[in-house]
Amino acid sequence: MWPYILRRLLWGIPIVLGVTFTVFLGLHVMKGSPGAAFMGKAATVEQLEKFDRDHGFDKSYPEQFVAYLGEVFTMDFGRSWKTDRPVSDMISEGAGKSISLTLPALVLTTLVAVCLALIAAYFRGRSLDRGIMIVAVVGMSVSFLVYIVVLQYLLAFLFPIFQIHGYEPGFWERWQFLILPILIQVVVGMGYDTRFYRSVFVEEIGKDHITTAYAKGASQKRVMFVHVLKNALIPIITRVMISIPFLVTGSLLLEQFFGIPGIGSLMLASLDTDDFPVIKALSVLISMLFIVSTILNDIFYAVVDPRVRLK
């Protein structure tokens, strides 16, 4: 397995390089020096030149790119131009807050969607199945922003069940602020996941080994939870694994509306203020997370399905 992981990691290098190059093109070549935004409305030419010198914009593009590669190689992106704080500190602080929001949401969404999908698949073609699917489709059809705006208004303002906005860093204190955004994330994610998992389960139910299990006298419960669910784990794992990068990057809209100072907020703020070191660090981080999540995906395949071999 280790040679496989090593090989996949090596294959990841061109991907990271590609992302690095694309980000470089977008920031350094197309956008150019953001000195004017940083130095204020009355910046002098000398000040702008000094800004460019200090941040390497006076060098040729190849030199600037090599410098960026150096940052990627050492994973040292220096300090934020906007906040003067180490980029690594800003990311690690934000990541914890984002994960507090996204991890429970992912776990809950998956659990609820799998359960609903199993029920729908079990009662396929009947009114309960149709009811679940109608709710899922309606749920999917409403935009994320509408859920946030409406549910924040209803459940935090009109009926003040939850907090409207805010965040406390303490582990226990933070949950009062996280319940509603987690709930919204679950509601939004549930529709798509339930439909997807139902189709996987229905396909699985139609297979010969399920008929055999019934013929052998296995109970409905055993068939659904052991034979169907176990064999449908690969698509479930795939779906969960591709969500891993989003656990760290957070949910931009939820973080913005609920005042959670996570990576989503950080990303938006850095884009808004042309904070290149943070933008570059986050871009590379996200691409690396995608590579790691696909490798983890493959490893889990091998764990749940003995037919899969990592070569």
Partner: peptide, 18 residues
């Protein structure tokens, strides 16, 4: 000073008196 990135939560917080 509470930091807001969106208008709705700021407005709702004001309405409830926070």
């Amino acid at each position: 000073y509470h930091v807001y990135e969106q208008d709705q939560p700021m407005w709702l917080k004001f309405r409830v008196g926070d």
